[in-house]
Amino acid sequence: MLVTYPEAAHWPIDPDRLDLVEEFRRQPRGPHGDELQKLLHRLRWAGDPDQPGRYVLIVTQPGKEWMLGRLPRQRGRPIELMRNHVFTSIAEAEWEVFKLRWEAVTGRTLPPHLSEKLV
């Protein structure tokens, strides 16, 4: 059986590389430089291992509004809807998820100028 292992992505993340965070914030939907691509692959592949599920977006109004949710790793279990996290652009949602993941994987809080919502 050909298996895809969640732990396969292991590019080492340097918590001091705030330049990559800034690069993502400038253009959440890309294009991205080589190192940011690797950082994103690591974050997207692992799918929030410290959380009860992978962060996902639920379309509440097609093309207009999305809600944050957590997709459990076990099939059959309901997706957790995070009704206080609603976004009106995909870029804004990408940035919020990126911040959550960065802080989880580095164990560090982002400095104030990088922790704000995307305008």
């Binding site: 992978r54 379309v59 997709l71 309901p78 997706i79 995909i90 998820v97």
Partner: peptide
């Protein structure tokens, strides 16, 4: 998510199928 190059955007139908 890595293949689709972004946070997964799921529909109401996906939410149903998960359960």
């Amino acid at each position: 998510e890595a293949m689709l190059e972004g946070v997964l955007t799921l529909s109401r139908d996906d939410v149903y199928i998960q359960e």
